[in-house]
Amino acid sequence: MHSFGKQPQTSVAIARRSNIDRLSIVIVTYKRQGLLRDLLDSIASLAGKPWRIVVVDNEDSSDTARMVDELDSRLEAAWGPSDPDDRGGTRRAVYFPQADNLGGAGGFSAGIRCAYGLGARWFWLMDDDVTCEPDAIGKLARWTGRFDVIQGSRLDFDGGAFYWMYRFITPLGIPSPFATSDLGPAGYRPTNQLCFEGGLVSRRVVDAIGLPDPRYFIYGDDAVYGYLASKHFRTAVVADVILRRARAISSWDIAGKRQLNSTSDATRYYIMRNRGYTARYLRCNGDYHRVLYGIGTAATLSKELIRLVMVDRSFATGIPALIRGMRDARKVYRDRSWKPMPPLAPKRRTAGHVAPVL
């Protein structure tokens, strides 16, 4: 049984919401201008109006900068001027180039930091290879009075439903492949992890747990961010479809219900390396069990070996990448100087917002 306490608004009031106060869309992009253009076009077609769109460019490309400028002019012509941000700016589309490629983890950390500094109250996070459904903001707005972390549903690139493993098996440190895809008559289920492909996060989550950890570079940073948020706030995955994935990926269908996607050797390395960081966060929060976490690591390695056999078939480079990742994970776990990301605001109790029983 999941307890969420007394709801702060009636269902009628929630249904009437059509926008989200000071909503900032945070996009991380790297050398995919074609996909990014489709995403920006979909943002311009949204029924609701985001307050800011922050585009974090890990490439620092003049082409991307031009696209963001064009979007800003387009939105101003269609929507009129925006309310000033906390720094006095009025641009809706903000270009935020990075000197180095920070990966997805570093990009989202930088993007949330930028939007936070501008005064955003909600952060809608997405990669450059998705497009927004026109009514997405209104769908998300229905839930902002009840949850501080909201993960909307997505369509795959072929238009079919995209399955997301929204339950994090904490002792093992892995997502549960058994989480039901049926979100029930209420249209949501509690979750204890997050995906930066469409996840919506409130400002007070960032206040309480800080920015996503850029040290992950890619993979696992969003799951751990959701895990940390669920320790303090109500978090949910909702049935409302808000995004469509725009990039076709080779995959292996498992009984027609699950799929194992192709990936790169770099990602394979980080999948294993980043288990060192996840172990540290679990340990900081009293959820680390050495034996069970080791079983989770063995399960993760087995999954990656199956991926190599069934999808990628790059054994000569893939297996060494996995071995390097496991070796470096041990270094992270033994690093005495390691510290978690700090909160951005002093810790305080907030009436009416307690963590769900998961």
Rank of each mutant, 00 (worst) to 15 (best):
1 M>T: 13
5 G>D: 08
8 P>V: 06
9 Q>P: 00
14 I>A: 14
18 S>V: 13
23 L>I: 08
24 S>K: 00
32 R>M: 02
32 R>N: 03
34 G>F: 13
36 L>M: 08
37 R>D: 11
39 L>F: 13
39 L>G: 03
44 A>I: 01
49 K>I: 10
49 K>M: 03
51 W>C: 06
52 R>D: 09
52 R>A: 10
52 R>P: 07
54 V>D: 01
55 V>C: 05
55 V>E: 01
56 V>W: 08
63 D>W: 02
63 D>H: 04
63 D>P: 00
68 V>F: 05
70 E>P: 00
72 D>H: 02
74 R>G: 02
77 A>M: 06
84 P>S: 12
87 R>D: 07
89 G>V: 06
90 T>K: 14
97 P>N: 14
98 Q>K: 13
100 D>Y: 13
106 G>C: 12
116 Y>C: 00
120 A>C: 03
120 A>K: 01
121 R>S: 01
125 L>H: 00
127 D>K: 03
132 C>G: 01
136 A>C: 15
137 I>G: 01
140 L>T: 05
142 R>M: 02
145 G>Q: 02
146 R>V: 09
147 F>C: 13
148 D>Y: 02
149 V>H: 03
158 D>F: 05
160 G>T: 15
160 G>V: 06
160 G>C: 09
164 W>L: 12
176 S>H: 11
176 S>W: 09
177 P>C: 06
179 A>H: 14
180 T>E: 12
183 L>R: 15
187 G>S: 08
190 P>A: 09
192 N>H: 08
194 L>S: 15
195 C>V: 14
198 G>I: 10
198 G>S: 02
200 L>V: 12
200 L>S: 01
204 R>I: 04
207 D>P: 00
209 I>C: 07
210 G>C: 02
214 P>Y: 10
215 R>F: 06
216 Y>L: 08
218 I>V: 15
219 Y>H: 08
228 L>M: 15
229 A>I: 09
232 H>F: 11
236 A>Y: 03
241 V>R: 12
242 I>R: 05
245 R>N: 06
246 A>P: 00
249 I>A: 07
250 S>K: 14
256 G>T: 04
257 K>M: 04
257 K>I: 05
263 T>A: 02
264 S>R: 01
267 T>Q: 07
267 T>W: 12
270 Y>W: 14
271 I>K: 11
274 N>E: 05
275 R>H: 14
278 T>R: 15
284 C>Q: 15
286 G>N: 09
287 D>W: 04
287 D>A: 15
288 Y>P: 04
292 L>P: 06
295 I>V: 15
295 I>Y: 03
300 T>H: 04
300 T>P: 00
305 L>N: 07
305 L>F: 09
305 L>P: 01
306 I>K: 14
308 L>R: 09
309 V>D: 08
315 F>T: 09
320 P>Q: 05
323 I>N: 00
330 R>F: 03
332 V>K: 02
334 R>Y: 01
334 R>M: 07
335 D>L: 07
337 S>M: 07
339 K>Q: 14
340 P>G: 05
340 P>N: 08
340 P>K: 09
341 M>C: 04
343 P>Q: 11
348 R>S: 14
354 V>Y: 05
357 V>T: 15
